[in-house]
């Protein structure tokens, strides 16, 4: 077949734009548009350089401060990995922050009663239960995930306040606090290790396994995925379950770092997590996802917080600046 050598007209592209290039016509097109996928890295480098210059005397570049950024963003980064799958499958999970908070108190209370192993298992079981509920309501009853998880946000944070009477639950078990918070592995903070493990596993699963491909297909065109023989309901169910389980792990990371379970841990995190994922280049409409991008989205927000604190801005100003940067980054990365 004498296939067209010039790119054929598409609705958005007038025929005049075709060029008789020897290269496959689309290579050019992809090259031209793909830089947008790297906006997060460009933004990360720019912000990093900006603070390096601005704050060179304030210890911004010290190893300890940089590791601190990892420590502070670990919970967001870990949840963002799972949220990448949820959003790539064209769903949303607004309950992650509240589930993390609930998991932190459930874990803390179980540790006090029955020891650290039981505590971890209780936290994971809670995440699993919430995830099955979320996933079941979305896939079996067909309720939009936005509504199901919005309701679950209220339920989970309400339960966390209720069972603790809003009181912090201290964790006195050093092993737990080390593994999930303040410990180190080969000189690296354990929270950094957790982040790296989750990101590595998430990145491989999304790009290199059949499950990851099914997630992307489900989010990209559900009908096509169904016609290809993919059980899209199972895909959606699975990503929602995984998201809740991972949120419960994040809750334990909060508990370990802060040596207590408390209903406020994770409150409002869902917005930071979603912002990290979208900043990282995952399409809010589903069908594409970038786990490493999500990590950098999370790190970028941590970087901004950290830099602004060192620069002496207070919390209210930090929020404004962070909001502006998020909107700017997404506006620049937006595809026409």
């Amino acid at each position: 077949m004498t296939a067209p050598t010039a790119s054929p007209p598409t609705p958005s592209e007038p025929p005049a734009a075709a060029s008789p290039s020897r290269r496959p016509p689309l290579v050019d097109l992809v090259r031209r548009s793909d830089w947008r996928a790297y906006v997060i890295y460009i933004a990360f480098v720019l912000v990093f350089l900006f603070f390096s210059v601005l704050l060179h005397g304030s210890g911004f570049l010290s190893g300890n401060n940089l590791l601190n950024i990892f420590r502070q963003t670990a919970t967001i980064s870990v949840m963002a990995v799972a949220m990448t799958f949820v959003i790539a499958a064209a769903e949303i999970d607004l309950s992650v922050g509240a589930v993390a908070g609930l998991a932190s108190v459930v874990t803390a209370m179980s540790i006090k009663d029955s020891g650290p192993v039981a505590g971890v298992l209780a936290g994971l079981a809670l995440g699993l239960a919430v995830g099955v509920l979320n996933g079941g309501l979305v896939t079996l009853l067909g309720i939009p995930s936005f509504l199901v998880t919005l309701g679950m946000l209220g339920i989970a944070s309400g339960v966390a306040m209720w069972i603790t009477s809003s009181a912090p639950q201290p964790i006195l078990n050093d092993a737990f606090n080390n593994i999930f918070g303040s410990g180190t592995v080969a000189g690296l903070p354990v929270l950094l290790v957790w982040t790296v493990v989750f990101v590595a596993v998430g990145a491989v699963v999304l790009t290199k396994t059949g499950f990851g491909r099914r997630v992307l297909a489900t989010g990209g065109n559900r009908v096509a995925a169904e016609f290809t023989g993919i059980n899209t309901r199972r895909v959606k169910f699975t990503v929602l379950v995984v998201s809740s389980v991972v949120a419960s792990v994040a809750g334990m990371l909060y508990a370990g770092r802060l040596q207590s379970g408390r209903f406020q841990w994770g409150a409002g995190d869902e917005l930071s997590v979603i912002a990290a994922v979208i900043l990282g280049g995952t399409s809010l409409f589903g069908g594409s996802g970038a786990v490493i991008g999500s990590l950098f989205g999370s790190l970028l927000m941590g970087l901004i917080n950290n830099g602004l604190i060192l620069a002496g801005l207070d919390v209210s100003q930090q929020q404004v600046v962070r909001g502006v940067i998020i909107i700017l980054a997404v506006a620049v990365a937006r595809r026409r």
């Binding site: 990209g220 065109n221 009908v223 069908g287």
Partner: peptide
């Protein structure tokens, strides 16, 4: 409607 626009041509061909 049988293709996923966000995936590449090759990934679509061998989807599943």
């Amino acid at each position: 409607f049988s293709l996923v626009p966000t995936l590449s041509v090759a990934k679509n061909i061998f989807l599943g």
